[in-house]
Design a protein around this nucleic acid. Structure first.
Lengths: 342, 342
DNA sequence: CACCGTCACTAACACGTGTTATCTAGGATA
DNA sequence: TATCCTAGATAACACGTGTTAGTGACGGTG
């Protein structure tokens, strides 16, 4: 690699001081330079291919134009397609604003791994956190210290900034659909262990939906999987073995739904004739599974984009209309639900 | 946010100079300090919760302990589960070495978007590039300038460092499996447009495998999809409409395979009875699809981990035994292949 | 007693940038 | 002529760290 080009080199080549270079390149408004000097500087910078050293810039300006993306559980990354969608949305917005993304995934298990060092070493200006856990005390501290942070999901903290999908309306719709098809015994396979806010939220939404139709969600009708299709398969086997009367299952997300369908078939049940399945997220492949998955759509790309936009607004000191955005998810009716067997 | 703690504060509290603080904290070997001074410094640092400012550190040391991860095509990110697996592997290794990951995804289309700015602003020390395109000239320049860069995939450049799966042996196995099952007309749905090295590599591997069995891969038996299951579905429809004689399809990856299966069913063909399907990658969900997917396993997590390890070795100046690692993929035989219909 | 070496520590520089206060030349004003 | 202003440019500081060259004290050696 060739020697670095500094603003000093540009100054020398243009025959001006380093200050002049800096001012010309950064502040187009300060019109206190003659057009010809200005031109000479720009030319010299272009000739040398000058790119300011970001470390020096960070040091003096105090911000890094980088946002951290923290994924609450490392395991989710490798098996679920939700995260990359959010990443896609974030990346899009960031690129437009000249921001960068630093990725940090935390180990699984309670209290494992922190991201304080990212914050305290000033490596990032703000944070987007995916899928927060209810018991994340470090996160609460950060929020209360006013560190710029946007949640994808929610912590139900009064001071949080977040982009969150409400599952209630569309879950209600899905329940209506199933109830109208004659289903009375509905189960759930959550996508993660208890403790994740989204897990509890989806469970509660389902419970309320069922109660509204005179049904209920017994504890025995719920199993917790662990992010992967494989874990969904295992959980479903356990669930259907314990409660063979169940005729419809809400999967915590679409990846889990793959496991649910596979387990049903392994137990000799056809989908949807013998077991109806509802997914969650509407990942891009959901419409192309067999049968095409009926699922509750959360636009993950949009969620990521909105989170990034909100965070950048906060960082740039712009006013943010709503700090807790609640999006409505949408039921996508496809082929994985049918009339209850009798 | 409270005021930053600098090494100066630590020095004052411990009653020593800033130099002492720096030396005590960074060089455990320089035993030139009395144990008690050492202890006082460590205590003070702990009391104040001192975390060195990373920007200052970067500036003076010249490296950022950050590696860039560049994804050649933004689209792939949102629809395929391969990338996050690689990310998982990279993250694991990085965490162990105290490195960070900066994510950059490029727009699609030829020559779109560059990552030079990352390199030239010294924001990253090295680069991991996923799925390089054969026509990426900027990349070739970087390699020839000896910038530390590791490819996941290959560019077939003599100076490159790369972690690459060879598809040939296992593709050969898969072809044997199908040929033995009586298949004579085999097609392919590539996962991306031509130009991606991996696309060409997998196509060639298939062609060679077929030729070895006295079969061939006509141009009319190949369609190119575009990363998503949906595009796989469309491509397969086109392929099977043009060449209804085809009885087995190699999908460019597992996500595409979902689309292949879905299209086959839409055209009234059962899988595997009427059409056999072979995937590629063995993503975590592949074993749980219906039918369970026979696929060529590339351990993406491992690939990411190896790439990160190689890059970090290069960055730390350690010798790297092999700069072009070639892994052997492995055929996972499941349920999506059956005897050719007659 | 002069000299040397070691121990424990520090002053001072370097990294590359953004920004503020200041300087200079030249013309206008009193 | 002395003073003031302005346009055009710059010297000098700050950011927080790692590192090199050096300082002073003290004990041992010839």
């Amino acid at each position: 690699m060739s020697k670095r080009v500094t603003s000093h080199d540009v100054a020398r080549r243009a025959g001006v001081s380093r200050t002049t270079v800096s001012l010309v390149l950064n502040r187009s408004d300060a019109a206190t330079f003659s057009p010809e000097t200005r031109e000479r500087v720009l030319q010299a910078a272009a000739d040398l291919g000058y790119k300011p050293n970001s470390a020096a810039r960070m040091l003096v300006s105090g911000n890094s134009e980088t946002i951290g993306l923290v994924i609450s559980n490392k395991d989710i990354l490798s098996v679920d397609a939700f995260v990359p969608q959010v990443l896609h949305g974030i990346g899009e917005v960031n690129q437009r604003h000249g921001f960068h993304v630093l990725l940090e995934s935390l180990a699984s298990g309670p209290g494992a791994g922190t991201y304080d060092h990212l914050v305290e070493s000033r490596r990032i200006d703000g944070l987007i956190l995916l899928n927060p856990r209810q018991d994340d005390e470090a996160l609460k501290r950060l929020i209360e210290n006013k560190f710029p942070i946007v949640l994808v999901g929610t912590l139900r903290h009064p001071e949080e900034a977040s982009i969150n999908y409400s599952a209630s309306a569309s879950t209600r719709q899905a329940v209506d659909l199933l109830a109208d098809l004659g289903h009375r015994n509905v189960g759930m396979v959550a996508f993660a262990p208890p403790g994740f806010v989204a897990v509890e939220g989806r469970k509660e939404a389902l419970r309320r939906g069922l109660v509204a139709r005179g049904l209920d969600l017994a504890d025995s009708a719920v199993e917790h999987a662990n992010f992967s299709a494989e874990s969904g398969h295992a959980a479903t086997r356990a669930l259907l073995t314990r409660r063979p009367d169940i005729t419809a299952i809400f999967a915590g997300n679409d990846t889990i739904a793959i496991g649910v369908i596979s387990a049903a078939r392994a137990l000799g049940r056809r989908v949807p004739e013998d077991l109806s399945v509802v997914g969650h997220d509407d990942l891009p492949f959901a419409a192309w599974l067999s049968p095409a998955l009926t699922t509750i759509r959360n636009d993950a790309v949009r969620q990521g984009a909105l989170a990034a936009e909100m965070l950048i607004s906060i960082l740039e000191g712009k006013p943010v209309a709503e700090r807790r955005v609640r999006l409505q998810s949408e039921l996508m009716v496809r082929q994985s639900c049918a009339a209850a067997p009798r």
